[in-house]
Design a protein around this nucleic acid. Structure first.
Lengths: 350, 350
DNA sequence: GTAACCTGTGCAATCGTTATCCCACAAGTG
DNA sequence: CACTTGTGGGATAACGATTGCACAGGTTAC
């Protein structure tokens, strides 16, 4: 495979000159430039990105940390959608996207550090965070360029790292809106089907649930709150448990549409009428929610836009440009459909 | 950042020794090994993967070529699903996955070549191919390690590159099965909503459609075959055009569930009863198809498994192990649901 | 007419590893 | 005792680029 030296020899110049042609250096005469370019063509030369990375200490590659095994991450439409957003920016900017393979949730720290130390990526995008996330702590401490989709909270749920860059949707407000929607429909016993509670987004959504209840003067009942994995199966299981309570809920908020689908499916199988016997609200506006019967009320998260913003921010950081607001909050939107208001009134968005 | 030399100095050995410890070289005494490991710990040393790549000429990274802009690729559940499969293997094998960003379909050749020449990837997985694909031709000519999901056909549709590695589902047979299912239900005018016809998978599915018709003694009517992009919108448009024919079809085969959803949606909007007025069959068994009303008959493609097989094959190739069958064909399965047989009979798989 | 500057290019160091070659020393062999 | 064999580890040269510095020759300024 042709190297820069081969090209240099063929063009009768030094390797430096070839390198300068490659870099578009201004002080190269038109004549030599053409000679070099022709030699490159003839030898089918492509620069070795690895060698270049070694000396420039950049790779024009951005890492994506899912903090979950790929197999699990891509089972939820959230990741493809966020990658769509990220990809649309990176394509324009000429960055590649490296998916860090992680064995499990705890392994992502090592994986991410390896990427940085190994100089394989110039920066990373984290797609979610945990309470007291040590990966974020390390990235902040080492001043590695990164953008978080979400927001950093310490182990006690307090905001931290005000200097960090992140893009978030206001999950507290979003969940609050969802619950208030149900309250306005007259529901008083509202079940909350949560994911693993140590994730910030689940924590925030639970927070919103509690806030809404508190404002309505309804006591928080821990029996109504269940957490599990974000799978349809666990959604179904959660519903079963909630329905077996002495005083079961008349409405359910699930923190993800996948969970909500599990709830809906289990409810319908049980012969419940939705929303008459049980109202259901999900999160994310997964395309599937527009097709279910009844269609599913859900909180639309601007996932694509989160990806776009995160990528834009990171690119700016890498360019050394100051990022004006270091933190961005994108609005959510409650999409009211039949699973809460019935066929007739569905379609009106709040 | 600590380098191998710093570690060497701290441990009182030469860089070579540190490198050997890193590589698990057998001829290193226990004592020095421990000294070196401790120095690494103290200096928080992580090897520079780029520098290593430069000399070893490997990167432990695999490239994924979607041949579409990321934004478009990830709009279809196929890609996330195939990545799930690939990722599940790569995680175990310790490979990273690099998504090649492509501006468009024609740009993928350059992008892929840059990846290889730049030594950024050890091999690539192509997720689809076109008739007479020049990227495949180049990879074969340059003997670059790659696995194709699909199969290589020349510009005239003849199989080529018998030495290439690929994983495919038998799209011809799959489409044939779908059409025969409709024929067995009595349909004689069957519309075919195709994607861009220069892709091999669309070509093959059309082939299956024609074969099934021919076997049933039904003349091929080009008016019944439409092609467009694989979007819901184009599915809907195709249906409109088909219904405006003098002798419109009573059934539709769409080469992708996304198209089928567009067809279904447009049909329902028009007030058609499905399947009584119009039967619909899709491809891929997108989770959404189990939720539509009526549920959608579809051909299940083992997408996850295609990803797993492709990744396994590529890893074997990279290891220098002979891959026993160079080509693998995975079976499809027709999932019969209500969009062809009505609510009562749905659920029986063929 | 000479100093100062500009243009275009080459030289050589460097990035952080791995790999080849070689040597010092200890132990086994006849 | 001389000679082979084996073990552990150091020196040094790649790997393929980039880049600061030097410098030759031509142009401009005064």
């Amino acid at each position: 495979m042709a190297t820069i030296k081969d090209v240099a020899r063929a063009a009768g110049v030094s390797p430096s000159t070839v390198s300068r042609v490659l870099a578009g250096h201004p002080r190269i005469s038109q004549a030599t430039r053409e000679r070099v370019l022709q030699a490159m063509q003839e030898l089918n030369y492509h620069p070795n990105a690895i060698a270049r990375s070694l000396v420039t200490r950049t790779s024009r590659t951005i890492g994506l940390i899912t903090s979950r095994p790929t197999e699990q991450a891509f089972a939820n439409p959230f990741f493809p959608e966020v990658i769509r957003g990220i990809g649309s920016v990176l394509e324009e900017e000429g960055y590649n996207l490296l998916l860090a393979t992680t064995h499990g949730e705890d392994d992502d720290y090592e994986a991410c550090m390896r990427l940085f130390r190994g100089r394989q990526v110039d920066g990373v995008i984290l797609t979610s965070s945990r309470l007291g996330d040590r990966l974020i702590a390390a990235l902040v401490a080492e001043e590695q360029p990164f953008v978080l989709i979400g927001r950093p909270l310490d182990a006690e749920g307090r905001p931290v790292y005000s200097e960090a860059h992140w893009v978030n949707n206001d999950n507290v407000a979003a969940a609050q809106t969802a619950v208030e929607h149900l309250l306005s429909l007259g529901h008083r016993r509202i079940g909350f089907v949560n994911g693993p509670p140590h994730w910030v987004f689940t924590y925030d959504r639970l927070e919103g649930y509690r806030t809404a209840l508190a404002r309505a003067g309804i006591a928080y009942d821990p029996d109504l709150v269940l957490s599990g994995h974000i799978t349809q199966q666990d959604g179904g299981r959660a519903l079963e448990r909630l329905l077996s309570l002495p005083d079961p809920p008349t409405a359910i908020v699930a923190v993800d549409d996948t969970l909500a689908l599990g709830v809906l499916d289990a409810a319908l199988r049980r012969g419940l009428r939705v929303p008459e016997d049980l109202a259901v609200v999900g999160f994310n506006d997964d395309p599937i929610t527009a097709w279910t019967r009844p269609t599913l009320t859900t909180v639309r998260i601007p996932v694509f836009e989160l990806g776009v913003m995160a990528a834009r921010m990171l690119v700016s950081i890498l360019r050394g440009q100051p990022v004006r607001p270091r933190q961005v909050i994108l609005p959510c939107q409650l999409i009211v459909r039949a699973s809460t208001v019935g066929e007739g009134r569905a379609g009106a968005n709040v």
